[in-house]
Design a protein around this nucleic acid. Structure first.
Length: 778
DNA sequence: TATATAGTGTTTTTT
DNA sequence: ACACTATATA
């Protein structure tokens, strides 16, 4: 392939970007400007024209999806050697590096990766163990603080807590303990993957040299989303050769809340004085009208790299703005609109997307979709891999690989039920921590735990033997069969089958899906291993499984829509205090937060190829309160000649009166909707809870953490070991305060407590727990 | 262990 | 409003 041929079909700026291979390069790629295309061509050029070894090219993305897409396109363009190019996410790359050099930073190769749920469980276990109050600092907030620190490469010992600030005091304490536990468990959280890679590169000159020489050409996609740690990582990786090409769009930086530092892209030229800067402003996606709207809205932001999108596409139709009386009407309106456009033969369902600011807004729209028989799919929501049953199997697998993982051990010791309750677990945990052993070690040598009854010790040892047996067997088996064996031999599936509910059936299906994933993994991986499988699962989000062929409307948050495009886009909830959010409006940061919301609006608008419909509601239920909303300032920032207004109720003040370029609309500043509501209860004010990290369902984590080294368990009913204290036996006549007299039919060991079946005179047979029943022998 | 009840927290999210 | 979590109780 010759250069001319390779550059064919690229515009001048794109060509420049492809040819700028040496030294630092910043590609400012506007929405829809073909940046992936540029990156792929750049890689092809490096290999085909400059004779660069494919194995020395590293392309880093944020999401698996982006990595997958780029991989596919690179494969198609480069041919047989493409497999040797490293195209992966930040996290996946760091894991590869850390596995290789694990021993140099005090880990073993088989370290496990903790996700957000695991992190929270670990923190809760620390709270239990140290008897900490969540009044002063909530586990979630502390986790947020820890994560923030890690994003900036701040270690526990560097965290300076204000002595007068009890939250910080506790956060500092928990942070230190958390770090210690991670190390003990031979585990890293997501932030550590980056942080430890940085630490490795900083402290180990040899490793740094090896990696600098290995990866001569580095490309980073979505550079505006990088945080402090990722910035440092990239700097260290390119220290020697400085062949760093970053691609991003400061106008699409929407992840500040999770640590992204927009300065990384804004200051790139300051940091690299010789950087070549290339702007891609030609858009291949949208109509000129849509781009004009986007340009106009984003021009209200200060402190950005100026950039104006243009296209040779046609002008297209006007942007529609419809203000509905209520959020219910809005939902019906959107669905009706979509339905009509499909019925008219103009579009397919899959041409449409409905975007909104918060997940909570999906419900109303979903209900209308169901009601009106419109096929839809909600993107986002609960991750497949965060479901309880999935996390349970994964915990088993983690334990097979890494004995040090106490969290995994605690999670599955009594799943399925083995009659090993909180008390037993607590005793084992104490024994382990006293002797500097892992929990798994304690189970292995349970006979030596003096505080345990013979029975309890037997059960613990039985569990340990089961794990050891599975571990032995797994060595000779493919991953999928190991997964199957775990499901089988632990009795996990058997217990679910016994339940026989719809829910348990679904869980079994999900587990089957894990086996399928394992089979798939075996087919794809070069050297399949249990570690490798766990790693892949840990780093995967199930959004990657969107079925693109299905003809249905996609519903998602504006954030989730980034990187996607649709012929027709509907953005719902264009109201002040909703979008921009009340949080952002109330923030006293000189408008930074609102600017981020505006970037989000920019992202939303630029998703549309042909049609853009903005909607709002005059009245909406928010957190159970009826709120009145004024039209979002972002609507008003669109030049009026681009907009076709509809709806039976227009904003009181004509948003377009006076100036043509979006005067701000001050009436709603800093106010909640309800301030203007003449009905409904006053809203409960939100507390100023600082930050939070996960919205995931973690009921199952709760169970584990309360079992795990729980001080609370001490207050709980008498343990099995106290059986002798019951004072009655099967066949005895007993008295109960409420049920009167009866005969003891059966006494069963229920793990934590004895389950006593009593046939009460006149009340029939009842199952009671010994500690509560307080039965008196007659 | 299982369930009922009271309490809490509510923007956005990847890995 | 509503989902999730902690607790209290039998």
């Amino acid at each position: 392939m010759d250069t001319e041929n390779l550059l064919k079909g690229l515009n001048d700026r794109q060509r420049e970007a492809v040819l700028a291979t040496e030294g630092p390069v910043l590609i400012l790629a506007g929405a829809g400007s073909g940046k992936t295309r540029v990156l792929v061509h750049r890689i092809a050029y490096l290999i085909g024209e400059k004779g660069v070894d494919p194995g020395s090219i590293l392309a880093i993305t944020f999401t698996n999806k982006a990595a997958g897409e780029m991989r596919q396109r690179v494969d198609a363009m480069v041919g047989s050697d493409a497999g040797r190019i490293w195209v992966m996410t930040f996290h996946a790359f760091c894991v590869r590096v850390l596995r290789q050099f694990a021993d140099r930073i005090g880990y073993t190769r088989s370290f496990t990766i903790y996700d957000t749920d695991d992190q929270l469980a670990l923190i809760r276990s620390i709270y239990k163990e140290k008897n900490l109050s969540d009044k002063i600092a909530k586990p979630k907030s502390v986790l947020g603080t820890i994560s923030q620190c890690k994003n900036e490469l701040l270690r526990a010992e560097d965290y300076k807590a204000d002595p007068r600030n009890p939250y910080q005091q506790q956060a500092a304490k928990v942070f230190a303990l958390y770090e210690q536990k991670l190390k003990e468990n031979n585990a890293m959280d997501f932030d550590d993957l980056i942080g430890n890679a940085v630490r490795l590169l900083e402290s180990d000159e040899d490793a740094r040299g090896i990696l600098n020489r290995r990866f001569r050409y580095l490309m980073v996609d979505e550079y505006q989303d990088t945080n402090g740690a990722q910035f440092k990582l990239v700097s260290l990786l390119t220290e020697e050769h400085r062949n760093l090409c970053v691609v991003g769009d400061d106008d699409q930086s929407i992840y500040r809340f999770r640590g992204a530092d927009i300065r990384n892209i804004l200051d790139f030229e300051k940091r690299y004085k010789d950087a070549e800067v290339i702007k891609l402003e030609e858009n291949y996606r949208s109509t000129q009208t849509i781009l004009d709207a986007a340009n106009s809205v984003i021009s209200n932001n200060k402190g950005r790299k100026s950039k104006t999108l243009w296209t040779s596409n046609g002008k297209g139709g006007p942007i529609r703005f419809i203000r509905y009386p209520t959020s219910f009407d809005e939902a019906s309106g959107i669905v009706r609109d979509i339905k009509e456009s499909v019925a008219g033969g103009k579009r397919r369902y899959s041409d449409h997307a409905v975007l909104y600011r918060t997940n909570a807004m999906s419900r109303l729209i979903e209900e209308k979709m169901l009601l009106m028989n419109v096929p839809y799919r909600i993107v986002g929501g609960v991750n497949f891999y965060s479901r309880r049953e999935i996390k349970d199997v994964m915990a088993y697998l983690k334990l097979l690989v890494n004995s040090d993982d106490d969290l995994a051990a605690a999670r599955v010791i009594n799943v399925p039920k083995r009659g090993i309750g909180a008390t037993t677990l607590q005793k084992a945990a104490e024994y382990a921590s006293d002797g500097g052993l892992t929990l798994f070690d304690a189970f292995c040598g349970a006979d030596r735990i003096e505080t345990l009854s013979k029975k309890a010790a037997d059960k613990c040892r039985g569990f340990a033997e089961l794990i050891l047996k599975l571990r032995e067997e797994s060595k000779a088996l493919p991953v999928s069969e190991t997964v199957g064996k775990v499901l089988e031999e632990t009795g996990y599936v058997a217990e679910l089958k016994l339940e026989g509910t719809d829910e348990s059936k679904e869980r079994i299906e999900n587990l089957q899906e894990v086996v399928s994933k394992a089979v798939q993994y075996e087919g794809e991986a070069e050297e399949p291993s249990l570690e490798g499988f766990l790693e892949e699962v840990a780093l995967i989000a199930d959004i990657d499984t969107v079925d693109e062929d299905a003809d249905c409307v996609l519903l998602m948050t504006l954030h989730a829509a980034k990187g996607l495009e649709f012929p027709a886009v509907h953005i719902a909830g264009m109201e002040e205090n909703l979008f921009p959010s009340a949080h952002a409006v109330g923030e006293l940061d000189g408008g930074e937060a609102v600017e981020e919301e505006r970037r989000l609006a920019y992202v939303g608008i630029t998703r549309a190829k042909e049609e853009l419909t903005l909607t709002s509601a005059k009245e909406r239920m928010v957190n159970g309160n009826r709120m009145l909303g004024q039209t979002s300032r972002f609507v008003m920032e669109i030049p009026r000649e681009l907009v076709e207004m509809a709806g039976d109720e227009q904003p009181k003040r004509d948003p377009f009166a006076g100036s043509g370029d979006g005067g701000f609309y001050g009436a709603a500043f800093g106010r909640r909707f309800s301030d203007e509501a003449s009905f409904g209860k006053p809203p409960r004010a939100f507390g100023r809870s600082s930050s939070y990290v996960s919205r995931k369902n973690s009921r199952e984590e709760k169970e584990v953490s309360s079992l795990y080294s729980g001080k609370g368990a001490a207050k709980k009913p008498a343990p099995a070991a106290d059986a002798a204290g019951l004072g009655y036996a099967e066949g005895d006549r007993v008295r109960h305060v409420k049920f009167g007299t009866g005969t003891v039919k059966e006494i069963r060991d229920g793990g934590r407590d004895f389950e006593v079946t009593v046939d009460f005179d006149g009340w029939g047979t009842k199952k009671l727990f010994a500690a509560f029943a307080k039965l008196k022998k007659l």
